[in-house]
Structures are given as structure tokens and as C-alpha cells.
Design a protein around this nucleic acid. Sequence first.
DNA 1: TCAGAGTCAATAGA
DNA 2: TCTATTGACTCTGA
Length: 1148
Amino acid sequence: MRSLWRDLSCPCSLVFSLSQRAEAAQREADALREQLTSSNQSLQLTTHIQTTPDTEQAVEAVSRSSLEAELGAKDRETVQLVEDIQRLQASLSKLRESSSTQITQLQLQLSTKTATLKQLEEKLQEHADYEEVKKELSILKSMEFGPSDSSEQVLSKPLEVLLLEKNRSLQSESSSLRIANTELSGSARRKGKEASVEETTTPSTPSLPPLLLPPSPQPRTPTDPLNTTTTNGTHPFTPTGIGQDFYSPHFPPVGGKMSLNALLQRQLMQTFYSKALQESNQGAALLFAPVHYTSTSTSGSSPVPLSASPLQSPAGPEVNGSGGAPSPSPSQSEGTGGSVSDWEDMDTSEIARQIKEQLIKHNIGQRVFGHYVLGLSQGSVSEILARPKPWSKLTIRGKEPFHKMRQFLSDEQNILALRSIQGRQRESPGQPLSHALQDVPKQRARSDQASRTGNITTRIRTPDCGSDDAIRSILEQAKRELHVQKSADFSHGPSPGGGLRGGGGGSDEAIRSILEQARREMEAQQAAVEPSLKASSSSSTSSSPSQRDLLVSHLAASFPAYTPLALSLKNTPTALPVSPSSPSTVLDFSSGVKREDRGVSVPDSLADGVPRLGRSSEESARPGGGHWREQWWSNMNPDPRRVTPTLGGEENHTQEDSKEALSLGSMCDGVGSRQKPWSKMTSRGLRMQLWLNGDLSQNTHIKPAHNQAEGTPCQTSASCSPAPAEGTPSQTSASYSPAPAEGTPSQTSASCSPPPESPLSSAEESLNGLGGDRDPLAPQAPSLEPPSGEPSGGESQPGTPLPLPGPITGLSIQETIAMSPELDTYVLTKKVKEVLTDNNLGQRLFGESILGLTQGSVSDLLARPKPWHKLSLKGREPFVRMQFWLQDPHKVEKLMDMKRLEKKAYLKRRHSSLSDGHSVDGGLAGPDFLQSASPQHQQPPQLYQKKVRVVLGPEEKEALKRAYQEKPYPSPKTIEELASQLNLKTSTVINWFHNYRSRIRRELFIEEIQAAGSAAAAKAGEGDSCDGTESDGTVEGRHRGPTGPEEHKEASEDQDMEVRVEAGVSGGSPVQRNSTTSGSAGPGSSSSSLFGPPEAGLSLSAPASHTSTPARNPRDNTLRKKKAANLNNIIHRLEKAAGKEDPSEWEF
DNA sequence: TCAGAGTCAATAGA
DNA sequence: TCTATTGACTCTGA
């Protein structure tokens, strides 16, 4: 600065002196002027005298001229000086400007350096903190670990070693506490139970045969007071294998099953046990998540500690450089963005907990999360989440996932993006991660890169990201093409990307080409993935239509006249190219209709029929074409529900921009260009189409409005009809125009112009409102109407509820389910069965149309509904759909219509086949024909051979059951032996065990339901306030009854315990059946005759199906008997085993 | 790798 | 032609 001023001083002084000179000159000039003036005056005076002689005049003249000359010179000098002054002033101002600039710059530099200085000072202060922390740590170490040891020794040991030691001691403490607790529980049980219990707790009482239960990890001697509990091992039906002690034979079954009290007590004990364990382990848990922790912790509780130990403070990394895990510098720790937080220690448990929470909340699978976010396999993710190692124990590499997880958690958009990915995964089950996993290394590299950039959205990829980039770029190009077209009609310059199709075809042509290229790209990739499928392809055309194309073509081809929109669709010319967008429009029909769920999604439905049919017939035989199209479409189609802003980014723009131009027209293209012959349609496709037609109308206006969030009701059917509807019917429509009856007014009105609905409607309200509470005059909005949304889904799934109106429009089915209150599955299925039976509607029709399930599944669901709380999110879906369906005032009419249409379609098909000379052979009539002709088999129907199903003979089954009773979870060796003995495939045996376990478990759920029902009925009988469930058949009634949802749930969970226990019994678990009930049967049977006659004792409540027509099928009774006998036999077997004192005899 | 959940689809039986 | 059963399969998580 000083130099600056020095520099500045020179020019300034110069200017100053010049100014002075200028002033002086000025003054001199003035003086001269005055002098001149006075001279002039004197001259005038002289002249005035006139008497002066001539010589004087001459002198005067001379002097005047000299004065004038001098004056002129002075004037010039003055002018010169003035100019100098001006020049100098200008240069001065310039100088000032530059100097001020310099000053500013220097000031900036100064502030920067000051800031740097400040930072450095802060760092110094931080370092001072470290020193303090180090000191504190030392103190803590000596306090925590060193009471007995010398403090020097403590301080010299690495923290990890100390923690391990501490952990060990805590473990032993926890063990002793557990033992004490078990004893305590034993006494509690003794309090609650009678003499029989005492018998079983006597040391002489033998435990159950080991073969019946997984071996206990820590076998105890028979004299051990804990003998009976510890021999249990993990209960096969204890979901977590935790709290096994409470499934011990100490809890005597009452009447063949555990009494509710006993179960309650058990649960309480378990809770206590868990708490005690947690408390006892807390110290250690805070520092470490012991490896054994999960095996001893409670089932429900997170096995990982939720908070970090103070010892895991920032000093951690510094202290324990041991274990090869030096504290990572920001750059070392895989460079995740290099945030300051990287310096910090992380609470791995907390991160894992939060991740789990988010995954559960958003229904994101570990597989997907691991793949897209961490670049790890599902197993690794599970491991990390369940047992996160303490930060200090992690190597740099081990810390990486936690960095990523924290990064992931830092922005909700990441989570949303992943959720949408997950949705896609579910949506296209045929192309799950297996495809994507081929690119794991590539993606991992990307993932790493993304980690560095800290942006999860760059990490998240669609499964087929192999070609993702290429496709994206192509789409981007398409977008640009569109822009070009929009903005400058005359400018046909080369596309920015170089112009794939520079030819003067115009943008349409260019886009068509681009998309075709995209198609080929994906096709090629798909072909690479599924070469085997490709080999099986038959005829092929240059382009195979997408599934959605087919779907839409179905619409037009089969039900052209069903709704005005159908006509319009058919008649709309192929205004725009790009068939791939057609599906999008289909999706848009049900803007909210989810596509996530594979089972019922349209693609899936189509996958069952259309695509394969297409391959086998007129369409291209591109194997798996549906998959890539699905994926592609999925990428391209803006799904309001699943395309999240983050995911969107560039893709979103592409979609929105494009596709704006191609929306409906492209659908029309799909319709117009790919009509499927009537005879090629599947029954499912027909039904879907029927529904879709109804939906189309609705959603056609729904879509533009995008959401009737404001409760805008579907307008009239007229409004639903798009303008082009007036177009000329196509040939297809003419030839296949359905009978008037098919387009019944009721149907049309129901599907197209549903009555207005309150904006207050929501999924929950709807769900809650099942049954009588709803005002029949105020039916739901279309979006809530299964009818509308339903199969509608046209696009996605039959029975998919449309998105909810209001701000939550676009709610996916999963979200709807997640929001759903607890439903009474029993009541729900009962009601559905009633409706179906009363109206003579088949399960197949209902299942395929409404639930998107097959008949068998429907039968299963209706006959054996699992309790709501036993169902996964996916498992709840059919029930939610049932709920929606039941709410539809037109549900019956619609199904009836569908039935009629299906019949008509069949007749038409048969007629056309006959006229073609192909007789529909008797074996393939009706749905059978449809099923055989459509799905999954690429051969023509006549060549199609059904997969031969293994049917086990009675002897085989009996043997398997016997084996099951001995070993519900047989070892591979046992399975092999069984398989060879029975001459079955090992897979068959494995599957049989799986199925049997699962089904026995479910049978027991039914008992639970029935028990709950009985209890509820009893309660209702006692009090005046009846729940109304049975009376009006609504779930709501039950839920709003005296037993509120919470209580209901609790009760259910209690029963759940019972169920598990019982399941364990049937599963050969160590749970011992009380001799009071089954003792009469006695352990008389020898091992060679384990199974008495099936009817030998039905003391166990039969797992009766609770259909509304229980005796409808006599076979039910037989089965029930069989099952009951089975369970009884197991009980007998257990009793028999229990009767053996020598454990060596337990072997069967 | 295994087990559970959910489902499909062949088959049996009414 | 319906429903029920059941072997097989996929997906998911531990």
C-alpha cells in the first residue's frame, strides 16, 4: 500500500505544481490586462488633451504596441497553460481510476488472506480440540478399562483391543443375565402354569428329540435347569429364532394349543427378556455390535446399537490406527465428495438404522439398494445393515459403504429416485437385476464415480444401463429434433448430435429413425442377454411391437365400438411415428395405475399372453422383446408417480419434451398400426381391454387435467370421447363391433362418467369406507373406483386402483397399500366370496380382472386369507384391490359384462377358426383355449404341450410327511436320500418341504383368524357395542368396533405367537404338546407306525376353510381331517419322543 | 445359501 | 366349467 501511495504521490505533486504554475500565469495575465487597460485609459486621457507634441505621440504609440505585443504573448501563454491544466487533469482522473482499482484488488486480496488466516486459526483451534479429546480419551480409557490394570498398560493398548476385552466381559455378563432371566421366566411360568409344567421342568424330564429341532448351539446337560429350554434351538416357526426359550415345552399347550394367557405371558416374558438383554448389552452394544448380538437380541429390535459411544468420538480414528484402519483423510476415504464430514467418525449403527428405515419406508429392496447405491450384493447389504461394524473397526474399504449411505441419506431425492428404480424393477420382473448385474463392474465404476461427485442420481441406473446411455443419448437427440421442429420449421439443419438421419425426411422421419435405432439398440442388448430365447423364435418381422402396442391394438381390434374412445383410437391416423410412446399413453390412461407390481401389471398380463402369442404368430419373434421394450418404455415414459425429479434430470426433460409432441398420437399409432386379430387375443387381454375401454374414457380427460386433484369428477361420457372419435370406424371395428349388449349403458356410464365425488376422497377414506358406510348415492371418484382404475390399468393391471385424487394424485398402489389401514382379510374375502357366489362369477374372471391373479391364487386367497399383519406389502395388495372392488357399485355389472364379452370373444374365435379351416379342438375350448394359445409358449397352440406336472402319489406324500415330522428342515443329504428312495428329483423334495411348511403355517393362520373371530363374536355378544363387522360385512365396522385398530393389532400379535407355536409343533419344532389334550392318543405308536389313521383324533381344531360355503366341497372335510390327523400325529410323535428319557433315543 | 412370501399353472374333483 | 390342490418358481432378506 505504501508503495502505491508513493507511486501515486509523484503524479499528484506534478499536477499540483502545474496547477500552481497555471494559476500564476493566469494571475500574470490578469495583471497585464489591467496594465493594458490602464494604459489605454491613460492613452485616452492623453488623446483628450490634444495639445501634446508629435514626439510624445510617437512614444505613446510605441509603448502601446509593445504593451499589446506583450499582452498577446501573455494571452497565448495563458491559453497554453489552460490546455496543460486540462491535460493534466485528465491524466489525473485516469490515474485516480486505476489507483482505485488497484486498491480494490488489494483489498480483496487482503480479505482473502484474512479469511485464510482465520481458517488456519480455526484449524489450529480444532487441533486444540483434538488434543483435548485425546486427553479425555486417555482419561476415559483409564476409567473404563483400567481400574485393575495399570493406566500405562491401558493407555498403551489400542482402543479396539480394550473394547474387545470389554465386550467379552459384557457378553459374559449378558449370558449370566440371560440365565438369570430364564430362571426368572421359569418361575413366572410356574406361577402361571399348573403341575404339568412342573413335571416338564424336573431334571429328569427328557427334552425333545434333537431330530425334531435344530440342535442347540449350546447343549446343556439334562440336569441343567435350562435344559428344556436350551435344547429347543431355534424354533422353525419362530421368525427370528429369538426368544426361543419362550417356545419351550415349559409352556404347556392347552387343549392342543397354547392358551392365550400362556402366550401373553410368553410375550411379556420375551419382551422382558429382550429388554434385559438390551440393557445388559448396552454398554458393549454402544461400542460394538457384537457378532452374536442378533442371535441373542430380540426379534423385533434392531440388532445394532442406535447411538454411538462417546468413545467413538472424533478421536476414534486417531486413536486406533490399529487394525490397519488408520483414520482416513478426506482424500483417503474414497473421496466421497471430500466433504468436511469425511473427517468425522461415523455412527455406523445409526446410519444403518436410518437406511433400513428408509428402505422399509419406501419399500426398497436391499438388492436394489445394494446394487445401485453401494455396488454391493444383497447379502453384503444385509450384513452391513444388520451388523454394522463400529467405525473404528472398519477398514478404508469397509467405510466406503457408510460414506455412500450417508451420502444417500443426505438427500431425499436420492431415496425417491431409488424408489422409482425399485418400482421399475418390480414392474418388469422378467428383466430383473440379473440383466443389470451383467454390468456390475461398469456400474460399480460409475457408482464410485458418482460417489465422488456425491450425487446419487448419477449413480442410480436403470437395470439395463448397459445401453442406457446410448438410449438416453438417442432420446436426447430425438428431443433436440423435436425442438428443432418446434422452433424452426424451416431449419432442417443437421441435428446437434450429428444428425442420425440427416436426410430430408423431416423431424418425424428423423425421430422415427432415432427411435428405431433405440429400439435396435435395446433389441440387440436383449438378444445378447437372452440368446437362448432368441434361438427359439420363429418368424420375425423387422419390428416387433411392444406389449403395449399390442395392448392398445387389442383395444382397437377387439372392442372398437365399446366406447367412443375406442373408436377414436382406432380411427386416428398414424399421425405421429414412434410406437413406443403408445404404451405410455396406455399407461397414462390410468395415470396413477401402478406398473410396479409384476403380477398384475399390464406388461405382465401381456407377458402372460400377448407378447408370446405375438411372437408365435404374427408378431416378431423377438424373444424378450417385451422386456427391453418394457424397460425402454419405462425409461422414456414419464410416469408421474415414479419419475422423480432427481431421476428425471435430463431424462425427464427428454420425456416431457418428447414425448409432449407424441403423446396421444403415438398411442393412436400403436392402435392403428398393430391390430391384433380377434382370434389372437387372450381372455385376459379381452378383459383388460374391456376395462381399459372404460378407463380410457376416463383417463383421457384425466390425463390432460392430469389430476382431478381438486376432485374434478370424470365428466360425461361425451366429454370422455376424444374428438377424433367421430372418425370412420376401422375395418376391424366394423367387423368386430360388439353386440349392443356389450356396450351396455350401465357399463359405459359406470366406466366413463362416474358420479362426482368429494375431493375429500382418499385411499384411506376409501379403504375405511368399505361397505355400508358409503353413501350409495355418492360413489367414489373414478380414481378410487376399482372399476375405473381396475383392470383398467389397462395398462398395468387389472384391478389396479387409480391414483387418488387430490394432492396425492399419482399414489402408487404400493403407497396406497402402505397407507391402508389394517384390513380384515377374513371379512374381506368372505364378502368377496359372497358377491362372487351370489352372482355366479368365477374366481378366474375375478382374479384375472380385478386382482391380476390366477384362479388358483384367488382360490387360495379366498380360502385361506392370511391375517393382515402377516402379509407383506405385496401380499396385502390383493386385499386392497378387493376392498376397492367391493366399493364399486357397478362391480357386478362389469364382471358380468366381461363374462359376456369373453364368451362372445370365444364364440367369435371359434367361428373364425372354423371358417379358416382350423377347428378348435374340443380340448381347447373357452379359457383353456385362451390360456393354451396365449401365454408363455411360443409354439402355436396345436404344438403346445403343457408342462407335465409332477404329481406325488399318496405313498410318496405319506413318506414325505413322515420325513417332515421327523425333520421339518431336512439336510441336503436327507433330501437326497429321500429323493432317491422315492425316486423323485431332489428339487421336488425340496419344493415339497418348502410348500408343506408354508402351507401348514398358513393353515394355522386360519385357525388364528377363526379364533380371533370367535373371540370377537364372543365379545360382541357380551357387549352392546357390536363391531358390526359381521353384520354389515365391512371391515370398517370391525375396525371401528369396540376393539380399535390398535387393540385389534395387539390381539392379533398375541395370536400370532400362538400361531407360530403351533406351526412349530406341526413343523416338528420342540414345542411340546400338552398331554392333557393329546395324551389320550398316547405315545403308543412306534416309529414304524408313526401315523395313525388320519381320523385318529381330531382334537386339534381342524383348519377348516372359512368359506361362506364350508361344505361346498366334501373334499374340504377330508382334507381337514387329514391335516388335523397330521397335526395329531405330530403331537403323538412329540409325546412319544418326550417319553423317552434317553436323548439317544430321540433319533427317529 | 437358505427360508419365507407370493404366485403361477397343471391337475383333480365336483 | 367351476373351485381346490399342489408342485414349481421368483423375489427378497437374513
